[in-house]
Design a protein around this nucleic acid. Sequence first.
RNA 1: GGAGGGGUGGCCGAGCGGACGAAGGCGCGGCGCUGGAAACGCCGUGUGCCCGAUUUACGGGCACCGAGGGUUCGAAUCCCUCCCCCUCCGCCA
Length: 428
Amino acid sequence: MLDLKLIRKNFEYVKERLKTRGEEYARLVEEVYNLDKKKREIQKEVENLRALLNKKSKEYGRLKREGKEDPSLKEELASLKKQLAQLEEELKQLEEKLKDLLLRIPNIPHPSVPVGEDENDNVEIRRWGNPPKFDFEPLPHWEIGKKLGILDFDRAAKLSGSRFVVKKGLGARLVRALINFMLDRHTARGYEEVYVPHLVKPEILIGTGQLPKFEEDLFKCERDNLYLIPTAEVPLTNLHREEILKEEDLPIYYTAYTPCYRREAGSYGRDIKGLIRLHQFDKVELVKIVKPEDSYEELEKLVRDAEEILQALELPYRVVELCTGDLGFSAAKTYDLEVWMPSYNRYREISSCSNCEDFQARRMKLRYKTKDGKNVLCHTLNGSGLAVGRTLAAILENFQQKDGSVVIPDALRPYMGGLEVIKPPEGE
RNA sequence: GGAGGGGUGGCCGAGCGGACGAAGGCGCGGCGCUGGAAACGCCGUGUGCCCGAUUUACGGGCACCGAGGGUUCGAAUCCCUCCCCCUCCGCCA
């Protein structure tokens, strides 16, 4: 949520900055600006009227206790009350409308973010590692997985429909290994491991920005008014919502493994094969709650922490800075990590690291008290560290061998009971 | 699912329909006492929003005692609905 005061004070600036995300937001900001103006006028009236009513009501009570009841005063009070009720209703409607609009305006991109329309305008920052060269025709991961007997999309469809997967044997083991490996790495670097609920209330999703605008992307348990989390960012970032933290509590670093549930509405036909786009996938997430002045330094560190996993797994990747048009709703600045995928012959997103500044903090009233006693909104950051399914896909594709086997990266072997290679079943 | 108890400020905890943003205690900050400290004494210490002069510091107002509604001139206090927590019983991984 944007600061209303900022919209009031720097209306043109906000409008211009949001335009870099898409033309439609300028109109929204204008609407908010006008509504806010009107709202404050009415609020002033309401508060003045209520002050008067409070005063007269006390007067009436005083007289009554003295046995000098005044019927004309009582009448006056009744008419004031009626007037007030009308104005209050008007105010309430304005406030609701205003709040709803405000919740639908995305974050302002940081000045350093390149202006652009879509992913084609993203800027590559650096590369690490070299894509492998094969002296045979490399297979896509879903075929490798099928041949190894570790991925089963057909039976998953039997259970749950499209965009689900069943992992078996060493496939299931590999998932567990990756999760443990990632969590161990992150906790060693100062993140506290957290295990969170996977079902959350609507206001929690408003807090991180998924609601009200992206309802159709979420799985909802209607009966209980709970949503399945689309990422651990949601419960992790909201952990301290409506709290006023002590300055010495910051920074807070959290990491959590959770499954993530996404309806993938509007992505029909995209990435229909393989592990890239599923309704349910596993992810280890990183979340930071920090002081505003530190947040951009923390973002760089966060990216390094995610990169470290890819490096340890010897997976070639590049770091990309998202342009204004490709930026997520809550983010002020985002780096994507893209891993090399031989079957696509290009890099594909495997992590997204964002600084949301105070955008989420304002929505969830997440603050800290400074040394001189002021309450200040925290800055929140989040990043994948990493998407487990896509990591698995990248390992299968990048480490595949001519004979159909897949070499397990060194760093992962201790988590696989020392296993070095996954080989196809005998006799195939 | 059944029966009962409860949600008040950073925490504990009191609260008769007006004098209650709320006693008291703890904690925290300042000052005093002290060679220094403990103990003690005094003072201060919630959040959000609006308006006004102003660079902040200031002054005024409104709201907030789990949430929403109602009764009343007036609600933390009475009534209704909902949510959450706790205890016991049942069921259950």
